[in-house]
Design a protein around this nucleic acid. Structure first.
Lengths: 179, 179
DNA sequence: GCAATATGAATGAATG
DNA sequence: CATTCATTCATATTGC
């Protein structure tokens, strides 16, 4: 719930432009070009949801290029995957009701800039060897997730637990204003 | 890629700054600040996996601040707990290089003059009193759970296991996926 | 500078 | 409880 802690970013220039983090004290991680490049390589190599272990390694590797945390890697893959799918989804079915205010044909800006992986795959592979990419079989085949459910209604689901009959004294004491 | 494609969700800009008006057609519950505050209080008080009864009560109470369902409470606790752990896991590895100390106790948004009563302060207290506040006596800030030992969480029940008690055959698993 | 967009971060919801 | 997906928020970046 750390929501309000944002808004104190002091950027001193384009972080993505320079590789050496110029002491940018940002609240938000700003990946360097090298970091993005590597992440992108990994992604295009098939890695989509790295495990915690992989995240650690990747983070460690990327830390060479600049400040980075594990969660950044985590979020990066989450976002990257989600957005790729999102883009694809946007063009797939554009038959909405009528209030469809979506931007049409957003493919102008090179749908995927992952193209430059062919430039120098060698060096990348060398780096990638640290992480066992095995999740290639996952592919990007949509799961066709159906949002069938949308009605919990008022019926109270019971995610039963073992003992609920006479559950012990619940410690629901609110410590409001316990200043 | 953030455009107004979701034109049916009414927002007034502030995410959690609004009370109740969480849009009407939003398919996703958007907790108000008050709701989040209360939930956080409960969580901080040690409540991690509320029982069905507790969820009911909490939900009822929170409904005062805005539209809410039981499942929202259920999910909230699930997520909150999971993310506490997850966060502790990913941020655990502080990068060796650039010794950045961005984490300066930015856990909770301080309870500043954020008094949660814009109009009726009494009702809030009244509301809170509905919770069975058992005076356990062990009132201490359990926020110091540095070891992530869910001590107070006696049993890590799994709601996936069917209990053969005298309660109806609970579905444990969200059975709302009909329709 | 502002609008539009790209993207890091957060979180509700759902599944295994 | 873990993992993942989808949506949204906040901010950085870029073009005009």
């Amino acid at each position: 719930m750390e929501e309000g802690m944002s808004g104190f970013c002091i950027r001193d220039g384009s972080v993505r432009g320079n590789s050496g983090s110029t002491g940018t004290k940002c609240g938000r991680w700003n990946p360097t070009t090298e970091q993005v490049k590597l992440l992108t390589e990994l992604f295009s190599s098939g890695l989509r949801t790295p495990s915690t272990d992989q995240i650690q390694k990747i983070s460690t590797q990327l830390s060479f290029y600049g400040k980075i945390e594990s969660k950044n890697v985590f979020y990066w893959f989450q976002n990257h995957k989600a957005r790729e799918r999102q883009k694809r989804r946007k063009v797939s079915f554009d038959d909405d009701k009528d209030v469809n205010i979506r931007r049409e044909n957003s493919m102008n800006f090179s749908t995927q800039n992952f193209a430059y992986q062919v430039s120098e795959p060698e060096s990348v592979i060398e780096t990638l060897q640290l992480f066992p990419l095995d999740s290639f079989g996952e592919s990007e085949s949509e799961k066709l997730r159906v949002h069938s459910n949308e009605c919990w209604d008022t019926k109270m689901f019971s995610y039963t637990m073992g003992e609920q009959m006479n559950h012990p004294p619940l410690d629901l004491r609110l410590s409001f204003m316990s200043t």
